[in-house]
Structure formats: C-alpha cells, structure tokens
C-alpha cells in the first residue's frame, strides 16, 4: 500500500472524525449513535497505521494487497452499521405509528370533552 494512499485515507478519517465532533457539539447528533462511527474511524486509522504488521495477516487470509483487506473490512463494518440503523428505523416506525394513533384518538376525546362544556 503506497504511503500516499495511507496518508490520504488517514486525513480523510480525521476530517470525518472532526465533522462528527462538530455535529455532537451542535447537538445535531446524539452521543449514543456517534460512538459506532468513532469506533469505525479509530479501527480504520489503526489498520492504516499498522500496515507493515498487517502484511502477514493479509497473506494468511489470502488477500493480494493490504489495501484490499482494509477496504473489505471497512465495507463489512459499514454493512453492520447500516443494518443496525435499519433495525432502529423499524422500531422507530412502529413507535411513530402507535403515537400517531394515540394522538388521533386523544384529539377525538378532547373534542368530545370541549363539546360538553
């Protein structure tokens, strides 16, 4: 893996990390969900820095070049993150449905209450 590619990827990870921090401070991102992105960035940086050691593992698993392995595992982790998000989305949808129904019924009861007055 060329040193230029490593430096470029590390800079990219750092910029992305700062952007996440920025969003947390702006209160646009909850700390709970930023943690998985931070661990992703940290893992990527560790992998990028330790490329000399990774060489033997790469050969052992059967990747031809280190960069392939890094991208491959990066891709796997991203898949896991998006699956977790889909699961989260499904439970959110269910909660919103229940809330919408209850709000509808409450509005109805409230109107009835006002009519009586």
């Amino acid at each position: 893996m060329s040193i230029r590619l490593i430096i470029f990827l590390i800079i990219f990870c750092l910029v992305f990390g700062f952007y996440i921090f920025y969003n947390i401070f702006k209160r646009k991102l909850s700390l709970q969900y930023s943690l998985m992105w931070f661990s992703y960035i940290i893992l990527m940086i560790i992998a990028l820095i330790s490329t000399p050691i990774l060489g033997s593992i790469t050969n052992f698993i059967g990747f031809e070049v280190i960069s392939n392995m890094i991208f491959f595992f990066g891709f796997i982790i991203l898949m896991i993150i998006s699956f977790v998000l889909t699961k989260f989305l499904s439970s959110q949808k269910e909660k919103i449905t229940t809330l919408t129904q209850e709000v509808g019924i409450l509005k109805k009861e409230l109107a009835k209450y006002h009519e009586k007055d």
């Binding site: 919408t100 129904q101 509808g104 019924i105 109805k108």
Partner: peptide
C-alpha cells in the same frame, strides 16, 4: 371521526379503529 395527524396506511388506520 378520528383525524390522524399523518398518513399511516390502511393497516395503521384500521388499527386505530380497533384501538378506539
């Protein structure tokens, strides 16, 4: 009538009726 604040789809609407 019950006025749902946003569109839920047929199942969600019918279930509102069952809840009522």
């Amino acid at each position: 009538f019950i006025d749902l604040p946003c569109n839920l789809g047929i199942g969600g609407a019918v279930q509102t009726g069952y809840k009522y």
